[in-house]
Simulated assay, not measured.
Amino acid sequence: MASQRIFQLGLRRAAAPGLRVQPAGRMVQRRLAATEHASQNQAAEILAKQRIARPVSPHLSIYKPQITSVASSLNRITGITLSGALYIFGIAYLAAPYTGWHLETQSMVAAVAAWPMAVKMGVKAFFAFPFFFHSLNGVRHLAWDVGVGFKNQQVIRSGWAVVALTAVGSIYYTFIG
Rank of each mutant, 00 (worst) to 15 (best):
19 L>T: 13
141 H>Q: 15
176 I>T: 02
73 S>P: 00
155 V>D: 09
67 I>Y: 01
156 I>L: 13
119 V>T: 15
126 F>S: 04
79 G>K: 00
4 Q>S: 08
127 F>Q: 00
72 S>K: 08
60 L>S: 08
171 I>C: 07
26 R>K: 11
77 I>K: 04
86 L>S: 14
95 A>D: 09
98 Y>W: 15
123 V>D: 06
23 P>L: 01
76 R>V: 15
2 A>R: 12
58 P>Y: 05
112 V>T: 15
20 R>M: 08
45 E>K: 07
42 Q>E: 15
93 Y>E: 11
61 S>T: 12
118 A>H: 15
119 V>C: 04
176 I>A: 05
105 T>M: 06
126 F>L: 14
168 V>T: 12
95 A>T: 07
88 I>P: 01
46 I>T: 06
158 S>G: 08
4 Q>A: 10
31 R>Y: 12
2 A>V: 10
166 T>G: 02
26 R>Q: 11
18 G>F: 11
44 A>S: 11
87 Y>C: 15
142 L>V: 03
155 V>T: 11
105 T>R: 10
129 F>S: 01
152 N>L: 09
21 V>A: 01
82 L>C: 02
9 L>R: 05
156 I>A: 11
44 A>C: 03
172 Y>V: 08
65 P>C: 01
75 N>R: 03
119 V>H: 09
26 R>E: 13
159 G>K: 03
89 F>R: 04
148 V>C: 05
164 A>S: 09
81 T>R: 00
106 Q>T: 11
23 P>V: 01
106 Q>Y: 06
143 A>L: 15
139 V>Q: 04
2 A>E: 15
3 S>R: 13
26 R>F: 06
84 G>L: 05
61 S>G: 12
47 L>G: 00
169 G>Q: 05
55 P>G: 02
135 S>M: 14
153 Q>A: 10
81 T>W: 14
153 Q>P: 00
120 K>N: 07
172 Y>A: 04
101 W>H: 09
6 I>Q: 09
78 T>L: 00
98 Y>C: 05
101 W>L: 11
106 Q>K: 10
140 R>G: 02
81 T>M: 10
43 A>Q: 08
17 P>H: 08
170 S>W: 02
4 Q>H: 11
1 M>H: 11
103 L>F: 10
107 S>M: 00
170 S>K: 01
80 I>Y: 14
120 K>H: 04
49 K>A: 09
5 R>I: 13
120 K>C: 01
31 R>M: 06
19 L>Q: 14
130 P>H: 04
147 G>N: 04
100 G>P: 01
153 Q>M: 08
137 N>K: 07
3 S>G: 03
43 A>F: 07
